[in-house]
Design a protein around this nucleic acid. Sequence first.
RNA 1: GUGGAUGUAGCUCAGCUGGUUAGAGCACUAGAUUGUGGUUCUAGGGGUCGUGGGUUCAAGUCCCAUCUUCCACCCCA
Length: 454
Amino acid sequence: MAQKPSIPKGTRDFSPIEMARRNYIFDTIRGVFQNYGYQPIETPAMENLSTLMGKSGEEGDRLLFKILNSGDFLGGVRQEDIDEKNLSKITTTISEKGLRYDLTVPFARYVVQHRNEITFPFKRYQMQPVWRADRPQKGRYREFFQCDVDVIGSGSLLNEVELIRVIDAIFKKLGVNVQIRLSNRKILSGIAGLIKAPEKLTDITTAIDKLDKIGLDKVVDELLQRGLSKEQIDQVLPIIELTGNNIQKLDSLEKLIGNTNDGSAGIAEMKTVLAYFDKLNIESALEFDPSLARGLNYYTGTIVEVLAKDVKIGSVCGGGRYDNLTGVFGLPDVSGVGVSFGADRIYDVMNELSLFPDEVLHSSEIMLVNFGEKEAAYSLKVVEDLQEAGIRAELYPDAVKMKKQMSYADKKSVKFVLLIGEQEMETGKYTLKNMQTGDQITASLPELIENINA
RNA sequence: GUGGAUGUAGCUCAGCUGGUUAGAGCACUAGAUUGUGGUUCUAGGGGUCGUGGGUUCAAGUCCCAUCUUCCACCCCA
């Protein structure tokens, strides 16, 4: 046997049944997006590296797939850079394009580039694959789909509220129990301000983000390691140990960091957002959690992360407000907020919990058995009539043994099989077999159609 | 990117301290059933043991390298 073919690490093929289920997820998400007034756009798989680099931190740059230049890509490389193994310099010379890492950065680029055609606030959605040169794990792929919704050009907190409602609506429709964790980047800045160490903001956030995972003691260790003093840590700890409901937590927090500019602004925003939900129907658990950090360094306001309650997997959705992402492309003072749904993780969760409805597999509703040349010619006309009546119908292409044809219908979960042999051709009444019950009836075409649609 | 595990038929796995033609269940193909699938019975096909080296009289079994998948870190959808 020849060497088996394979696909690159962290990528997957999708079978018809998997596609049916994936499309069910995409259709559900798209339906909600449209229902809330968002419009689709698409952007290319590859972007210029100058667009992608430096937007999601060093870690993000490391995870970028870079595309080798065409032609004599070595032409511009200097010998001294090779000798000194100056990788970053060589990279920028031999590669000027990369695969997109997420959809938010290309969207920001799109907004800046098309600013004169866009009516703001601009509500768009985008469902496309992204690529990351990460090491694969469960729920972590090198090629995966993100479904992003963003509204850009409006600073109103109503947008945050709407996006949380979008999240709730989608997971409700899919039947996935989720917890929605909320916080605000300004609260974290307030904490950093409180201990007079604004430059430690990232260190503090990445450390306390792990609270759920590694526990309080280890978080303290990590904070020490990251250069915070004991006194500073003592100031930080009460903040991440808040108890009570969302409002109580915010009230206690206000006493601690309410005197910092960022802190009080963040708390006020959080309170405003939560207050809207007093009068709204929302099913998912909404939890204010000041230990929520989210790494992407372009977030400036509200941050949100959605976890599946019943499956241990990374977040299935996440996002937040970014006040100046378009600034790096030359369009300052445009605030946006958006969230991204991880379709592949949602698939994994639903698969593990067997949440897919049976009817997502759209195979034919009826298959006509092929008895031979004459019968097939006759059946073809019946297939046409059925299809015109809006029924998914097919004729088995070969006049092979009936057992084989029936078994084909069974495996494809075709609901009905229609038998048109010599007798049926003479009488004009066909034999219809229901594959689920095994019942058979003899009926004319209009009666059949009625029966199938019942 | 760091550390650790894994890899035997299409799938899930068995194969003791290296020893003749590598096994099971499911799936597949054919027949029982010449106009009837999903159940049952019978028979059959299919593996250079991830790949490449090495040790040995002898390697699925030991050693090295490499790739895949998985787990933790990192990061995140």
